[in-house]
Amino acid sequence: MIRIQHEPFDIGALYKGLSEGSHNTGAVVSFVGRVRDFNESPEVTALSLEHYPGMTERALENVVERAQGRWEINDAIIVHRIGYMTPGDDIVAVLVSTAHRHAAFEACAFIMDFLKTSAPFWKKEHTQSGAYWVSERESDLASLKRWEQQ
């Protein structure tokens, strides 16, 4: 399931939806990304998140498909928020269920790594002294490398 929404999400409800009634699932790994009060500047007061409707969903579906090609995944959920958020708010949730834990850990990390570099979302950070668009990170691009080598 892929969802782009303004509203906060309930990670407990997402977990329940993923795992309930599934008897072949031995492992669920979930990741939640949150708004930090420091990033490119030391005092981030808020974040606004923009996306490209239509393309975002397609890009996320592609990421999940690629993960399914590498690991035996029972189910996967991506929920990504857009709009205005403040430090401590949740931004994104990724949950993956599999039979065994290693696949779930890896697939969850894989999905996040590709989400960060291929899904059309953009963050703008707000501070006391003004707002700016967040730059891409070399470390995010470098994170993709480990999946190529395998």
Binding site: Y52, M55, R58, I91, S118, P120, F121, W122, W133
Partner: peptide, 29 residues
């Protein structure tokens, strides 16, 4: 650059009715 919701690189043919988007590197997650 994305053409019809797919990221593209280099120069490609653009067809009538295509949706072409230009944007900075993505920073979601």
């Amino acid at each position: 650059c994305a053409v019809n919701h797919d990221m593209v690189q280099g120069d490609i043919t653009i067809n009538p009715g295509d949706e072409v988007a230009f944007f900075p590197p993505v920073t979601g997650g």
